[in-house]
Simulated scan of single mutants.
Amino acid sequence: MSWRRPGWAVTVIVLLATSGLGLVAAGLATTPPRPPRPGAAAPAPTRSAPSVPPLHRAEPVDVRIPAIDVRARIVPVGADADGHLEVPPLDRPTLAGWYRHGASPGETGNAVIVGHVDSAAGPAVFFDLGRLRPGDTVRITRADASVATFAVDGVGSYPKDRFPTDLVYGPSDATGLRLITCGGRFDRDTGNYVDNVVVFATRVP
């Protein structure tokens, strides 16, 4: 998975020797991720202002997405010395990762959570992410026991060299959430999926 963080490049190259957000090991093909539902391409605009007051900062610990039957523990991730985004360990594909240098879910700004689409063992935590549609809910439990609930605004699928940096990481006066995984065609020559799937959501009461 690759994308750019404002002011510096973040690139994760999915290789057999590294972790990534979508991997098929040599000789161990997995089921392709399910594509976005029809009509769920390019993101719908997020709400112009938060509908509920923002929360104070608190680490997210759990994500639930009822529409695709996801319940997963969240671990904090950052970037390594080379500027590569850290992701949950590939041998623990049921975990999601929160980008800890950005907003926490419920704070003003866009909180970013990443997850694997698959692993050599099969589908991973965000395998069905592209199936979400506007209005579906995402519930994030935080370390202070509060729950931040978000409604999906839209789902987009983007070639990795055209990742929507500003829409994902850009400043916002809303309390937003971005869920990211890999998608599209799997390129066996590079060991990468060619696209990123991004879910855009905004906090609701």
Rank of each mutant, 00 (worst) to 15 (best):
F127S: 03
I140D: 04
H56W: 11
D80R: 11
A72W: 04
V138I: 15
V63E: 09
L28S: 15
T181P: 01
V10W: 05
P93D: 03
V147Y: 04
S119W: 00
S157G: 04
A124W: 01
P36S: 08
V75P: 07
F163P: 10
A174R: 14
Y99H: 11
A124F: 03
T18H: 11
A25G: 14
P88C: 00
Y99W: 14
D136R: 05
D69S: 14
N192Q: 15
T108F: 05
V138K: 03
T18I: 00
R188H: 15
F163T: 08
F150L: 05
A29S: 14
V155G: 04
I180W: 09
T11D: 13
T149W: 01
A145E: 13
D91P: 00
D173K: 07
D62S: 14
D82C: 05
L90M: 10
R73S: 12
T30S: 14
M1F: 07
T181R: 04
G22R: 02
F186P: 06
V10Y: 06
V152N: 05
P33A: 07
P205D: 14
T175L: 03
T141M: 02
R5M: 08
D161R: 11
R131Q: 13
D195E: 14
G176H: 12
T31A: 12
T165A: 14
H116L: 05
A201F: 03
T175H: 01
A111I: 03
D91G: 00
A148C: 03
P6V: 04
R64H: 12
P205E: 11
V168T: 01
G78A: 09
T149S: 10
P35D: 02
Y158M: 09
H101P: 12
T30I: 10
T18N: 11
A124H: 04
A96S: 08
P134R: 15
A25K: 09
F163E: 07
L16E: 15
A124Y: 02
I140C: 06
V198N: 05
A201D: 00
G109A: 06
A121K: 11
L132V: 08
T11W: 10
C182F: 05
V155C: 06
R4L: 07
R37M: 09
A120T: 10
D153C: 08
D91V: 10
V138M: 07
A67W: 01
P36I: 00
V197W: 07
A44F: 05
L16S: 14
R73D: 15
Y99R: 09
L95R: 02
V117S: 12
A17N: 12
G27D: 06
G109K: 06
A111W: 10
H116M: 03
T165C: 08
Y169G: 03
V63M: 12
D166H: 12
G122E: 05
A49D: 07
I13K: 08
G184R: 01
W98E: 00
V125G: 04
Y99K: 08
G106K: 11
A111M: 08
G22Q: 01
R133V: 15
N192L: 09
P60E: 09
